[in-house]
Design a protein around this nucleic acid. Structure first.
Lengths: 155, 155
DNA sequence: TGACAGTAAATGTTATAACATGTATGGTCG
DNA sequence: CGACCATACATGTTATAACATTTACTGTCA
């Protein structure tokens, strides 16, 4: 695959600015990574968004999390977390129960089946990330993480 | 906004690996940028995907492009370009005509109205990108572009 | 020439994203 | 207390993404 985004997108004209090139590079790179990730999850019949939510639930432990807490922790904005959790529940990967203290909250917890699915995926997910990002090496990865972090902090 | 993704996503546990942290950082950063971009386009009633297609059509000039060519140039994969172009056409931003030489192809061209919309947006889009990415400075932007390019080339 | 494979686009369908609105619960202050 | 506002989640609806299938056209080669 080409190393040059301009060529890769068969664009004739140069980019309007370095900022624009960075913006498009980011989008393109994420699209490629996300698509590969999605393909890898497909045999297990879950989407990247669902995987992300499940990982968050695993990280939260047995007390679970409220819908709002999950939303805040998601990588990309999810405007309809209720139905995302509906689907996880329908698949038996999570369960919900209304909070007894404050009945406005609904606590979602990961099930044994959900934990088993994640455990099953852990190795292949790590391998995928290594395959796609490992080429950079530890130092460049840290640089990348730092640059991205600086972008987010300037927004 | 926090500079640290771990904190930002309220994650308690550390990342499983640097590769994973980079993966999540990329996704998070793109989600934030894309959302801001989408919001900026909203008053003009087009989506980032539609904007991207329009820019590609502008770059192609008066001869236009086939549906397949547009797909290859899009930033993120579009599995249904036909109906994306349907929408642009319905808005009067593009027109289509079957190729007379090879009638399998349909050539899409940008209209005057499409060009006017892009011209109207050019400045504010550049400003947005500068606001979001300008903080890095030219050198760091080049570094970022290079790192992203290396990721794509290793896939 | 005419069956056939290959290519390009369109169409049908389902699931999900996005947005607006509604409902239940909890806290606050006159 | 009780009206009022804020919070948390759910629901209704529309548009779009994603995928599979179909149609249209071209070139080839027996």
């Amino acid at each position: 695959m080409s190393t040059n985004l301009k060529e890769e997108l068969r664009q004739k004209r140069p980019f309007a600015s370095t900022e624009q090139e960075a913006f498009l590079s980011l989008g393109r790179t994420w699209a490629v990574l996300e698509h590969a990730f999605s393909e890898a999850l497909k045999p297990h019949e879950i989407t990247p968004t669902q995987y992300n939510a499940l990982r968050i639930l695993r990280g939260a432990g047995p007390e679970g999390l409220s819908r709002g807490d999950i939303v805040h922790r998601m990588v990309s904005r999810v405007p309809d977390a209720t139905r995302l959790l509906d689907r996880l529940e329908a698949m038996g990967l999570s369960v919900r129960a209304r909070d007894t203290q404050d009945r406005r909250y609904v606590r979602t917890r990961i099930t044994e089946q959900g934990l088993a699915l994640l455990a099953d995926l852990d190795d292949s997910v790590q391998e995928l990330h290594e395959r796609h990002l490992g080429a950079l090496g530890e130092d460049d990865l840290e640089t990348l993480i730092d640059l991205l972090s600086r972008i987010r902090s300037s927004i």
